[in-house]
Design a protein around this nucleic acid. Sequence first.
DNA 1: TATTGTTATACTCTATAACTATA
DNA 2: TATAGTTATAGAGTATAACAATA
Lengths: 139, 139
Amino acid sequence: MTVDPLENLPGYSLRRASAASMAKLARRFAALDLRPTEASVLMVVDANPNITQSEIGRMLDVASANMAPLVSRLAERGLLERQPVDGRSHGLALTRTGSVLTTKVKKTATEHERDLLRKITPAQRKVLLAILRKLWSDN
Amino acid sequence: MTVDPLENLPGYSLRRASAASMAKLARRFAALDLRPTEASVLMVVDANPNITQSEIGRMLDVASANMAPLVSRLAERGLLERQPVDGRSHGLALTRTGSVLTTKVKKTATEHERDLLRKITPAQRKVLLAILRKLWSDN
DNA sequence: TATTGTTATACTCTATAACTATA
DNA sequence: TATAGTTATAGAGTATAACAATA
């Protein structure tokens, strides 16, 4: 029989759990013609009207070089509008269309979390968040 | 002040924790001129001499179309050898060089897990593995 | 018919370097 | 000098389609 030498490694399980979760989430967001990162940007702008691109990047840990085309696509689709804050940065806000879509995004995200958490007990849910946050907040 | 609407979503924390962990692991494996997936294949072959490519793919959830170039690179580097099992599949085994390198891979993986787990308590470690396995083993 | 392995191709996310313009 | 934003480019992982050879 075959042996999986990785199955007892928490780091590897973390990777597999995340990959499985993200693949499912990507399929859900595809119904809204959005990729997961695009959906996350919409949610952040929704919660923080007039936030700048660089602030979003720091919050989501997306490099500025990767934020540029991401925001451009959302703006070209008429989901976001840019209003100048000073000479170099722009505040981002959802358009009417973007706001409607983001409502669906939030519903999709909630469904996804529900499906994910359905697999574990309520006690485990509390522990899980605390652990995960520690794993990546430290550094 | 800005608000992070994603920070309380376990699915998002899972993604961030995994991404942070994998980025660090990739930097470690780069010192061995290996990518994480290549390293994982070496570990699986090490634990299962004569395993076939398709069996590895099923174990690690890597599509056969992606296993082909992966194994080819490792074979071209002289880390793996293929011996025919039947007319269509080959058993994979580590070469002497591959075996030496895999010893370093396992050491690196162990160090990585130690660093990761250093951030959480022993009690949390036990819970974490159980939860993660449930999150992706179900489907 | 199902499985193994392969090639070609595309998509998503991420990373780096180099640059312009503004603070 | 530091920051905001941009462009170009590359790497890594993953996904689909189509195919040949074998079981």
